[in-house]
Design a protein around this nucleic acid. Structure first.
Lengths: 367, 367
DNA sequence: AAGGACACGTTGTACGTATAACCTCGACGT
DNA sequence: ACGTCGAGGTTATACGTACAACGTGTCCTT
């Protein structure tokens, strides 16, 4: 009792002439081997209707199709190598199971990791991720929904500037999950944040505990929520202690820029004994600056980074830095988006961060 | 004579009942503001047929639609905020204008740059790129076409191992462009390669020219065409010169692994005076190893890298390395794929590479 | 004056899928 | 003997778009 044969399903009657299709255009037509099989081909092969194929392969056949027929259909699909046409499915369902991930720059290790995490969770849920390499060269007015070729179900945006965010929401009324962004400006359905303030507190406390009293801040000159938090948290962490913030130098997010900024910071007299940097890239530049001034790290000047990029352990000395669970941020962002799309209540976690003590910090010599 | 009014286009006669759609399901229905506008909405707004809208917005209206009507249509589309439904378009056209990019790991700067380049060219041609984070955690048998949710027009694969490549081609009969891969195994429609051999020759010649005679190779323990080329090219470059290859240590593609490998290489007696590394990450590890052994770079041992990652200039001393035009590789790959899809003849360029001399190499002390 | 030829649109499909609504049996209770 | 009911399917759409094929008036040629 493998399959229940039915009459009347053998010859698929074409409902009418099809003037819109010139079959003579394709010289290879006639042989059925060329084109990709459709659900109708599977149906023909299994002696059932296309609807049955859809039911079986869609998993909704319980009590509507007999187990034997279901297995026949699955087997036919397998032998034909059937893969559903995603465009057709998306058109029918109005959903694409694809999310847009907007990041400032994929070449920054942090965002690459965020992508990895988001992509992993997406794959687990049969979802896709398409990247939007954020408006750096093309100007800020690029429409993500124009350039992202895929139809989208939702958006995950990391470290978005406020104005870019506005453009995003205007472009499409899609569910939005924000990463590393101001949780107050809640145009988002959910937010995933890191406890950046705590990280900065840990870094500052670490330096203060070592005896540092003159600390300079190498700040990222990027208009992003996360860097604002870092500056404020550092100010608060130092306030009321024996230490002092003896300068803030703003720098672009590159080693070269940071080298210049740190050189300026180290020109102050009395010289700061520690540089607290907004990013590991900046910390790398700070180390270079120190050494060019004839100062040793950490003996003459301590340096801390932020993010714990792979760079942190490639440098020498290895960077003391604040480790951010980047992949987890991406993963949680995707989970939140999936929850929203399911109509479930998405939580907006704040993930903990952890100072990692390595070789770039030590007690100051003059303490 | 702005627009030619026509009778009979006012009331769009619904061709029949639509039992497949329960309008009562959506409580917000009735008001026309909720849903995304379709080309038919634009047509209604502009008093033309949907076909005309398609012609105008598709740009194929020359001589078929009057300029005035065309402008009316465009204006209507603008005010309604019309965006074509990509799923429907893909279904109709059988093409998606989306390419799959397969890379081993996006967290490696090189591949992030390849993606950037490919993505840039894609955007210029109104194409999309979806990433396939290659089978590292999930095992090598993952089907890229199952996990990539988008329907695809073609595939660009970088540094693919042979067996993974086979799985790729079995999965879908899509045009394939290979990057950094064996040009002989031409299952690909086109290949984009770097002149890796020349790069290795430049590095070796540089060291030999400085007077180095005992050179060790820190080789990447990755089964990839590009690393095979590096090893063979190095052997050839050194053969017949006053220099000698005094050891090859294989290492995983991480700083930690490279540290161990380089430590082994530097344990040889007489000690090599130069380490030539397959990758900047490995070079970073080599520098760490040297310093832990009390050796200075470059005074006691010279180190060269490969790729010119951002890491190269973050280190101190900055790495002498072979610069690879990563973005250009991605861009050329996408151009080649677009050419193939257009039915044009795609060329398979071999891009030049350039040694960048920095601080990690110098003449040996004992020369 | 007749017959194109052209400009400017329109009507009608089909792409492949998912599902609502319908149909056809055999079994079963009364 | 006959309605009824459920199991196990089928038939008929519609999603939104891009054309192929087919009208219309209008002007120009012969």
């Amino acid at each position: 009792m493998a399959s229940t044969r039915r009459p009347g399903t053998e010859a698929e009657p074409r409902t009418g002439p099809s003037p819109g299709r010139s079959a003579a255009a394709d010289p290879a037509a006639g042989a059925s081997a060329g084109a990709r099989p459709t659900s109708r081909d599977v149906a023909r092969h299994a002696n059932v209707s296309q609807a049955t194929v859809s039911l079986v392969l869609g998993g909704k056949w319980q009590g509507r199709v007999s187990p034997g027929t279901a297995e026949t259909v699955r087997s036919a699909a397998r032998t034909l190598g059937y893969r559903p046409n995603l465009a057709a499915r998306s058109l029918r369902l109005g959903r694409t199971r694809t999310a847009l991930l907007v990041v400032p720059a994929l070449t920054h290790d942090y965002f690459a990791r965020v992508h990895t995490g988001a992509s992993r969770v997406a794959t687990e849920h049969d979802f896709g991720v398409v990247l939007y390499p954020s408006p750096e060269g093309t100007g800020p007015a690029v429409d993500p929904f124009g350039s992202a070729r895929a139809a989208l179900d939702g958006v995950i945006a990391s470290s978005m500037a406020p104005e870019a965010l506005a453009a995003l929401r205007d472009g499409g009324q899609l569910p939005l999950v924000m990463l590393d962004s101001d949780p107050e400006g809640d145009r988002a359905a959910a937010t995933v944040n890191l406890d950046i303030a705590d990280g900065m507190h840990q870094a500052a406390a670490h330096l203060l505990g070592l005896g540092h009293r003159r600390i300079a801040h190498i700040a990222a000159a990027v208009d992003s929520w996360t860097f604002g938090v870092r500056a404020r948290a550092l100010a608060r962490a130092v306030a009321g202690t024996a230490g002092r913030l003896v300068g803030t130098e703003r720098s672009g997010l590159s080693v070269e820029d940071a080298l210049e900024a740190a050189t300026r910071a180290l020109a102050a007299r009395p010289r700061p004994t520690a540089l607290i940097c907004d990013d590991d890239l900046l910390a790398a530049g700070a180390c270079k600056a120190a050494r060019r001034l004839g100062l040793r790290v950490p003996e003459d000047v301590s340096v801390t980074g932020f993010d714990d990029l792979s760079l942190a352990t490639a440098l020498e000395p290895e960077l003391t830095t604040v480790r951010l669970p980047a992949e987890e941020v991406g993963a949680e962002g995707m989970r939140a988006l999936l929850a929203v799309l399911d109509g479930r209540r998405a939580n907006s976690p704040v993930l903990p961060v952890q100072l990692v003590r390595r070789g770039s910090t030590a007690a100051p010599a003059d303490a």
